[in-house]
Write a protein that binds this DNA or RNA. Structure first.
Length: 422
RNA sequence: CGGGGAUUGGCGCAGUUGGCUAGCGCGCCGCGUUUGGGACGCGGAGGCCGGAGGUUCGAGUCCUCUAUCCCCGACCA
């Protein structure tokens, strides 16, 4: 995209009402806009990051055999009454409203109950199973206190997947495969080294659920981490008995702050029994459906990444989720601008996502914005090199530029394996 | 929900013991000079000081209520 057409402008000062690093940088760079506490709009650059994260998640979920759907944000009261979770005492983060005729409705903070109701009408036979579906949804949670920028909002984007299985074994098999898929997701978006499978409280059916925790001081969870095993225990279930059970040694554990970027649950047959979702097995017997659910906080991930990858100058996006691969700018006269226009067309045609700073501002301002926005590669078209057909290429995380021809430039950029046009 | 802090042009801030047309920097508009790390000069636009009520000759400044935001805690299927 051409920066002259971008709706946002970068800011030198972050708004005083933001404390969190992720919010400060994302607002300064023009990625998000605060609507109110805990509710942020995603501007073109920010939306691109969200979409890139989604693409990675989507590919990994599809690889599991799951299919994407989209449920409603508006939810009927009935299904939640069945499970008992319509209660404000039990679930204190409900946003509720009512229709003109007085019928109560809720805004989805989870989609477990609605998906079970759907499954009830769609899943009848063992032949229909196993099956898994997922969606990217805006969740609404009326938190008492919003905090940490986009890391904990009242409205946020989440990928949630629901798997229906015929037995505990079948469920477990899918559960383990999904756990691996999750680790792939975190690896691909740049958080692989710092994200750990973590034992957490399990809920009604199993003793544990598994969280995916990214180690960061900005996180709100405390975990006990065994780095060599790449496993951790959430503080909420941490005690000697549990450690012994998990075969983890206390003196191997580090106490660290972390942000939960995913959580997976095994509900066993409980949900099916509770909500009357049964199928007929091969012998015609009614059996409860086994449910497991899998969440990834997409917008929170964006926040965690912003917290994790930055320096004095601004953001440093990992290549797989950067809003663009190249920040292109020309210095000087009509000749370099013409050359930059041309390069922009070439790169775009080759499927490279480019932010082209075509604004009539001084070079220093362009450099600063390139750094603030955290685009992996900066390409400068200047008089001194263009006469030899060379472009100056510099990585965001490295200060020494190199001079390359267009084809070498494209090769270099594409080695980051991101092919998007914008 | 308990505690603490804050609210003055789009953003960051100043504003004395209550006093006259409410200032500064950034950003924005115009003209000119500039052009490899957020340039400079000149000229402009933009604010009933979060809101309501009160005290006073007079309120950005004092009092009461209220809204919103941030932080700590509690909370986080």
């Amino acid at each position: 995209m051409r920066l002259s057409q971008n709706i946002t402008k970068t800011l030198k000062d972050a708004p005083a009402d933001e404390q969190a690093t992720n919010a400060k940088l994302l607002i300064r760079g023009g990625f998000i806009h605060k609507e109110m506490a805990g509710a942020y709009s995603y501007l073109p650059l920010g939306l691109q990051v969200i979409e890139n994260i989604k693409t990675v998640v989507r590919e990994e979920m599809n690889a599991l055999g799951a299919s994407e759907l989209l449920m409603t944000s508006l939810q009927a009261k009935d299904s939640w009454v069945i499970s008992g979770r319509w209660s404000d005492e039990l679930v204190d983060i409900w946003f509720k409203s009512q229709l003109k005729n007085g019928t109560e409705v809720g805004f989805g903070w989870s989609h477990e109950e609605p998906i079970m109701m759907m499954a009830k009408s769609l899943v009848k036979s063992y032949r229909d199973l196993p099956i898994s579906v997922y969606q990217f949804q805006t969740k609404f949670r009326n938190e008492l206190r919003a905090k940490s920028g986009i890391m904990r909002g009242r409205e946020f984007i989440m990928k949630d997947m629901y798997a229906f299985s015929r037995s505990a074994d079948e469920l477990n098999e899918f559960y383990e495969r999904t756990k691996e898929a999750y680790l792939k997701v975190y690896k691909r978006i740049g958080l692989g080294d710092n994200t750990f499978v973590t034992f957490a409280s399990g809920g009604s059916f199993t003793q544990f659920s598994h969280e995916f925790q990214t180690v960061t001081d900005s996180g709100e969870d405390t975990i006990y981490l065994d780095r060599s095993k790449r496993l951790a225990v959430n503080e909420e279930v941490y005690n000697d008995e549990i450690l012994a059970q998990l075969g983890m040694k206390k003196d191997h554990l580090e106490k660290v702050k972390a942000a939960e970027v995913g959580n997976i649950f095994n509900f066993g047959s409980i949900k099916g029994e509770q909500m009357d979702v049964y199928f007929n097995d091969q012998s015609g017997q009614r059996q409860p459906v086994y449910l497991s659910s899998y969440g990834i906080g997409v917008s929170r991930l964006m926040g965690v990444i912003a917290e994790h990858f930055n320096d004095q100058r601004g953001l440093i996006w990992p290549t797989n989720i950067a809003p663009a691969m190249v920040y292109l700018l020309a210095i000087g006269n009509s000749k370099t601008i013409e050359a930059a226009d041309k390069l922009y067309n070439i790169l775009t045609a080759r499927g490279v996502a480019v932010i082209y700073d075509d604004r009539d501002v001084r070079p220093g301002e362009k450099f600063s914005d390139a750094d603030l926005m955290g685009i992996p590669w900066r390409v400068v078209v200047s008089e001194q090199f263009i006469k030899n057909g060379l472009y100056e290429v510099k990585s965001r995380s490295n200060n020494t530029p190199q001079q390359l021809r267009a084809d070498a430039l494209i090769k270099l950029v594409k080695s980051g394996n991101l092919k998007r046009a914008s």
